[in-house]
Every structure is written in C-alpha cells, then in structure tokens.
Design a protein around this nucleic acid. Structure first.
Lengths: 235, 235
DNA sequence: TGCGATCCAACTGGATCCAATCTACATGAC
DNA sequence: GTCATGTAGATTGGATCCAGTTGGATCGCA
C-alpha cells in the first residue's frame, strides 16, 4: 500500500484521503482475512474486534456490512459473522470470469497503451519479482494484481476494473495459500515477463496468452487447494 | 418478488428467511432509488429516513453501507450520502459488460436447459408482457432481469450470476427512466420472444443474437438519456 | 457595499445502554 | 440412562446520547 501516491497521481496534487473508522476497519480486517489470520469458517466476534482496535462495536458492525458486501464474510441474524468459504467450482469460476473480463479489457487497452504505461508496468513487475524471491507473500498477492491492473488501466473501463478488483479480493486469499503451500509461481513469473514483452510489441496474441495464463493459474491453485482440503477436512 | 417460493424450492421445505432491519431497509431504499423517488445527486439524510421508517439512525447507517457497496449511493465523511450518478460512458460500459458475461453464461446454459426451465422462462415472459402493457414500470424492470436470469440459471454459475445481478441493479433505474420517457420497448419485446424461441430450438446462434439484443438496448437507452441530460442539466 | 471572521444549527460519527436471541449446560421427568 | 425442558451466559440487534464536523448565516469592519 506504499504506492498509493503513484496511483493517485492523476488526481488533485494535494488531496488527503481521510477515511472513517468503519472504512479503515474493513480495510484492516480484509487484510487479516486475506493473510489467513482469520481462516475460512472462523467466527468474527464484534466485541473482540472492537477491543482489539480500542473502539466501540458500532464501527465494527458497519465494517462487517462492507466485508459482507465484498463477499469475504457471511453473517446470520443474531448469530454473528464468519469468514466465508468458496467451493472449488466457484473459485474456478472466478478464474474463468477473470479470463473473460481481463482478455476483453486487455484487448481494449492495447490500443491506448503508452510507453510510460509500459515503463510503469515493468517497474511493478520488478517489485513483484523481488517480493516473490524474498517470500513476502502478502506483497506478491498485492503486486500480482497491481501488475495486471497496470496493463488494463489505459482502457479506461472503470466498471470492468471495479468488478475485477472485487474478484481479485475474493481469490487473493487462496492465491496466498497456494504461495505458502507450493512454489509454483515460477511459471507465472516467466509468463508475466512474456506478457509484458508482447505488450511492448503491441502483439495482439497477448490477449489469448493472457487467457491461458489466468486459466493455468486457476488450475494450479485448485490442484494445490484440493490436496489441502482433502487432507484437512476443515471445509 | 412473489416467486420467492419457487426459487427456494430446492432448500429445506419450511425455511423462513428472517432479515434484519438494515437488510429490509436497504432493500426498500434500493427500490425507492430505482423507482426514481430519490434521483441522482439527491442527499439521503439519515435522520429523515429513520423517521420515515420509525426506527433509529443505526440500522439506517448500516443500510447505507450496503447501498454504497452496491454502488447506488456515495457517502463522504461528515457530509452524508447522495444518490450516485453514472456518466454515460460507464452506463454503456455496463451494457457491454452485460453483453460479454450474458453471452458467456447463456452459451454454457444452453447445454443444460431443460423443458421445465423453458416453461418457466415462458411464464415470466408472459408476465413481463402484461406488465409492459399495463405500464407497470417497476415490474417491467424486475421481470426483464428475471427473464434473462431464468435463461442463465441452468448454467450453475453462481458468481457470474451474482455479478450480473449487481450490474442489473445499477442500470435498472436508467432502464426505468427510459421506459417512462419513451416507449421503445416493443423492439425488445419482439427480441425476447425470438430469444426464447431460439432457446427452445437449442439454436446456438441465440448467443450472438443476445449480444445484439443487449447492445441495442444500451444504445436505445443512452439515446433517450442523453436527450434528457442535455435538456435537464441536473448532471 | 464588500470582505472576512465568528457563531450557530444541522448533521454525521462514535460510545454506551438496553432488549432480543442464541447456545450450552444443567435439571428433572419418564 | 435418555430425552425434553428450562435457565444462564454470551452475543448480536437497536435506541439513545454525546462529540465533532460542516456549511451557512450573522455580525463587524473597512
């Protein structure tokens, strides 16, 4: 999150984004769910969270509503909230959705991609590789999406990006689990470099290559995940 | 919403779905926004809403969080919430997203479409036509999406349907405005019948026909909307 | 009259309090 | 001993209360 400044560069120069407590809370809680601190099925007790952040239960409740809308938790009336669980088929469906939407947006983006955009992407890719080789899992998850997004932004498709962002939040935690379990990211790393290179050439075949990249990542993830889910019957 | 029972038929037979006040509130408020009672840019004052529903401001605040997550309102800290506004390009983008996702899911659905599914769709279409000819705008909006969804459900793509549902909520209010302004729905009505007929024949060309149907609807909507937006500079 | 500082009303944000509901354990009847 | 019922503790849902912010109105001054 230390690259906020770069991201906001097109906005007003001196804009300080204040956020309400519920927003800050939901951001922090989201990160803790993605990091695996709160696992699938874990109950989230309002009072405990409130105590941790030294605030009342009220902002916690509003944060829960946001997390629920993002699909990270499910809450039943008078029974509290638990971290949501996604069946394998739905995880794969999310990867297929990504494939569909990212191919579409990448195709549109190619026509507007400037050299500065590509330089920016290259920079993110470099940081992503550093994060991967220092085993900084959280940063790998963040930067992986950051890299993809940097390629799509020139398309100017705000709604598509928003949906993709939401999908990414949903699957990020599983990607992190995969990274913790296996080291099957080298393939993705090679592919990322090839994607960037093809984008530099404005080679339209990159669109179909991206589709394969995403679907392969999904399959790899599911394979690792299913191994874990049968051995650990927490699901 | 009177077909709830049908939809839940595969669940436990006697399940009563209680909902919390915030949920009920956000549902009601969403409907009021979609119906145009609250227009783009209108401020939503917590206290006023709470008074209307004879409850405290607390459940209203939680409902606002949900509506914000759905993209129907935007709230600034210490300045309250207003009904969100979508620029024309983003409305068209949402229609293009619909085209992409609905073609994909329809294609998958075709392989599982049973005769019962088709009978159900036909029934909805009939109700949709009744609603249109009795000028029941709210029902037209609801049933239009209901018809589309009934064709996609057999695909079993939960996440895709959830995203499409979200998109539909976003554009429903503009569809209703269009229905109020013009009567350009006859074309869509003809197309609906043709879509259903092609589905009955399991004709795969229905996928591309659906794409045209959605894109045409988007263009018609934007045309009507732009006329209104230049004459009424509320945006 | 025009500009600016100050004050006030309206509203939102957050804390605390009370009520409703669920869970688990204990008690008692058969 | 087992099953049903009752009850207490925990937890959430909703109301009320207080503090902080905003925006506009008012007043003062040049």
């Amino acid at each position: 999150m230390d690259n906020m400044l770069e991201q906001k560069k097109q906005r007003s120069k001196y804009r300080l984004q204040r956020q309400s407590l519920p927003e800050a809370l939901s951001e922090s809680l989201r990160e803790r769910i993605l990091s695996g601190e709160f696992k699938e099925g874990d109950p989230l007790i309002q009072e405990a969270i409130a105590a941790e952040y030294e605030c009342s239960r009220m902002p916690v409740r509003e944060a829960f509503r946001q997390l629920e809308a993002a699909g990270l938790i499910v809450s039943k009336i008078h029974k509290g909230a638990i971290v949501s669980t996604l069946p394998s088929e739905q995880i794969m469906e999310l990867f297929e959705l990504r494939a569909t939407l990212e191919c579409d947006i990448l195709s549109r983006s190619l026509e507007h991609l400037s050299d500065e955009d590509l330089a920016h992407s290259a920079q993110i890719l470099k940081r992503l590789e550093v994060a991967y080789h220092t085993r900084d899992i959280a940063r790998v998850g963040t930067l992986n999406w950051e890299f993809h997004r940097s390629l799509y932004r020139p398309a100017g498709r705000i709604q598509t990006l928003a949906i993709l962002q939401g999908i990414n939040v949903q699957i990020d935690r599983y990607i992190r689990i995969q990274l913790l379990l296996t080291s099957g990211f080298e393939e993705a790393e090679r592919e990322h470099r090839q994607i960037l290179s093809m984008c530099k050439d404005r080679d339209r075949q990159v669109v179909e290559f991206m589709r394969g990249h995403i679907i392969r990542a999904g399959h790899n993830l599911l394979e690792a995940l299913n191994k874990r889910r049968v051995s650990d019957p927490a699901a």
